[in-house]
Design a protein around this nucleic acid. Structure first.
Length: 573
RNA sequence: GCAUCGAUGGUCUAGUGGUAUGACUUAAGCCUUCCAAGCUUAUAGCCCGGGUUCAAUUCCCGGUCGAUGCACCA
């Protein structure tokens, strides 16, 4: 049985969208090549993404290496948390999650056990695949990160990044300076990430190397409900599938963002804003709204750092609802983790409107006496005194396990009122994270269509004009009488206007239209004999197959307007 | 990774222990005044490695890739 997935992937392979990688050596699962049209389409999708995040939101793009040193991923938790404890069944050779086997066998807290202990604990458990008792097995960590070494001698461990996000976190201090020490600000990155999936399947849905587009938006934790442009999307309405509804097996309910925030369905304005923006972005690249929903993570499904998390899911005929975008409130988890691991503070100084008067007690020791009296212990006493709670007759401080009484005349207690001008806070991070490859797949699957034209079946990719790899085709009706020259001139005028136009004069005109239909070229210009009389050409619409005549001079501007969506073909009729 | 099934020009396919059929596509030419028309010609293929055999695309074993189920994963 041939479903849309098979048809669309077959077309993608044939027409140069997606290829298995390094086919001449035998492809490798989990890796794909984007062919000429696929790479073009992917770039258009990425550029639409940039239109939203860089131009509309003003978050600049940065570009970090795909390899980072181990410390980065120790801090992020990926070295520890991104690996699974696995074992192999000695009977059926099946690889199993050791902690899952343990849980099924009634072992408590397997996730915190050491590998050796876990191996011992599951010896009497049964294999989930063949039901045999496991016996002696080795438990090992399988980390989903690709490991490598940096430099000669295999001295330094490096990993291929499993997400682009960490680059924005480790650059936090630089970014903060760039944005002149003010919240909120954001940074984005589009790039490759790598996960050594145990068993990649499903074509381009789960890849070992994939392209992510992520935004990290740094915001004051108290201002998550004060998005400065929230009004833009306050009335934006879309179906939301909350975790409560999921538990009751109910359907998604349409709701405006204002309502979702007010009812506490979405945790805050920032998250709601990017939920709406994501919906708009996906519709812009041609995803049909009826194939789109936003699903909230169940509480036990959330990553350890996230408080609220929503996935944009796109319905695929083959794969069902596919998670394509993740929108998470990562709180201050990442910045705290990197601050601790690196020793670099990752805070923002927030100045108060008015300095606050704060009462503070300072203990000022008389060091000239203390120093002489206590010699080598004096420094420790000095530090201990600063946090001591003195009474009228002095203070007891503990130094090296010894309690020393410091008489009251050896220090001065000064209670003072000082001005506090602000505070250091750790920003929270709102993270929209897009799987570009999955978006591209959704665009391909959603565009695929077969219809009947003049009694013949026609395969047509109904791409939105803004993502179609080739934007317009130019044909001379006949390859003679100077029609080719006119068509060639028009092609070049389109190139000059930044339009990717393809000239084609091979074969019958109908065949040329069908060829372009199959790769989703939205418009075609045909030069015919009338062109020589009145300097007009026909402009043909891929979806309706209708034609209008327009003047040659207006071709570039008209095609530009049609491609960017500011004009509809129907308006020209 | 396990199990089952599969793999023949770019695509779909026929067939075989003795190098392969047909169609579509593509290219060149002829023809052609708007939706895969026609004619001529050309290009192009048995997934990889090993074994059995005089000879393997075909039979056997192993692998790769793909589909499905399990497991895993988002």
């Amino acid at each position: 049985m041939s479903d849309v997935f098979e048809k669309v992937m077959d077309l993608a392979k044939r027409r140069g969208f997606i290829w298995p990688t390094s086919e001449c050596y035998g492809a490798v699962a989990g890796f794909i090549d984007y062919g000429p049209l696929g790479a073009m389409m992917k770039r258009r999708v990425e550029n639409i993404w940039r239109d939203f995040y860089v131009i509309q939101e003003g978050y600049y793009e940065i570009e970090c290496p795909t390899i980072a040193q181990e410390s980065v991923f120790i801090a992020s938790g990926h070295v520890k948390g991104f690996s699974d404890k696995m074992c192999q069944c000695p009977h059926c050779k099946e690889f199993l999650r050791a902690d899952h086997v343990a849980e099924a066998g009634g072992v408590k807290n397997p996730s915190i056990m050491k590998n050796e202990d876990l191996a011992a604990a599951i010896a009497s458990c049964k294999c989930m695949a063949c039901e045999e008792e496991l016996g002696t097995v080795e438990v090992f960590n399988f980390n989903l990160m690709f490991q490598t070494t940096i430099g000669p001698g295999s001295q330094r461990v490096g990993y291929l990044r499993p997400e682009t996000a960490q680059g924005m976190f480790v650059d936090f201090a630089r970014l903060l300076r760039f944005y002149r020490d003010k919240l909120p600000f954001g940074a984005i990155q589009i790039g490759k990430s790598y996960r050594n999936e145990i068993s990649p399947r499903q074509g381009m849905i789960r890849l070992r190397e994939f392209t992510q587009a992520e935004a990290e938006i740094f915001v004051h934790p108290d201002e998550k409900n004060c998005h400065p442009s929230f009004r833009r999307y306050a009335d934006y309405t879309m179906p939301l599938l909350t975790y409560v509804q999921q538990e009751k097996c109910e359907e998604a309910v349409p709701m405006s963002m204002r309502e979702a925030v007010d009812k506490g369905v979405i945790a805050n304005e920032y998250l709601a804003y990017y939920v709406a923006l994501t919906h708009q972005l996906l519709v812009t690249i041609g995803i049909k709204p009826e194939r789109l929903r936003f699903r909230q993570h169940l509480p036990d499904e959330r990553a350890h750092y996230a408080t609220d998390c929503w996935d944009a899911e796109i319905r695929s005929d083959r794969f069902g609802w596919v998670e394509t975008v993740g929108l998470a409130d990562r709180t201050d988890y990442d910045l705290n983790a990197h601050a601790k691991e690196s020793g670099t503070p990752m805070t923002v100084f927030i100045q108060y409107d008015e300095p606050k008067k704060v009462a503070r007690r300072r203990i000022i020791p008389n060091m000239s006496v203390l120093g002489k009296q206590y010699r080598t212990k004096a420094k420790a006493i000095f530090e201990a005194l600063a946090v001591a709670s003195p009474t009228a007759d002095g203070a007891d401080v503990e130094v090296d396990g010894e309690t020393i009484h410091i008489p009251a005349d050896l220090f001065e207690v000064r209670d003072e009122i000082i001005d506090v001008r602000g505070e250091e806070i750790v920003p929270h991070v709102i993270e929209p994270s897009y799987g570009i490859d999955r978006m591209c797949y959704a665009v391909l699957e959603g565009a695929y269509d077969e219809d009947v034209a003049d009694g013949e079946s026609r395969t047509v990719m109904r791409f939105s004009p803004n993502v179609a790899p080739i934007q317009v085709a130019v044909f001379p009706l006949m390859t003679r009488d100077g029609l080719e020259e006119i068509a060639d001139t028009i092609t070049r005028s389109l190139h000059k206007a930044g339009i990717l136009a393809e000239y084609d004069d091979s074969g019958a005109i109908g065949r040329r239209y069908r060829r372009q239909d199959e790769i989703g070229t939205p418009f075609a210009i045909t030069v015919d004999y009338d062109t020589k009389e009145d300097r007009t050409v026909t402009l043909r619409d891929r979806d309706s197959m209708k034609q209008v005549r327009i003047a040659i001079d207006k071709v570039p501007a008209t095609v530009c307007a049609l491609v960017d969506g500011s004009q509809k073909f129907a308006e020209l009729e």
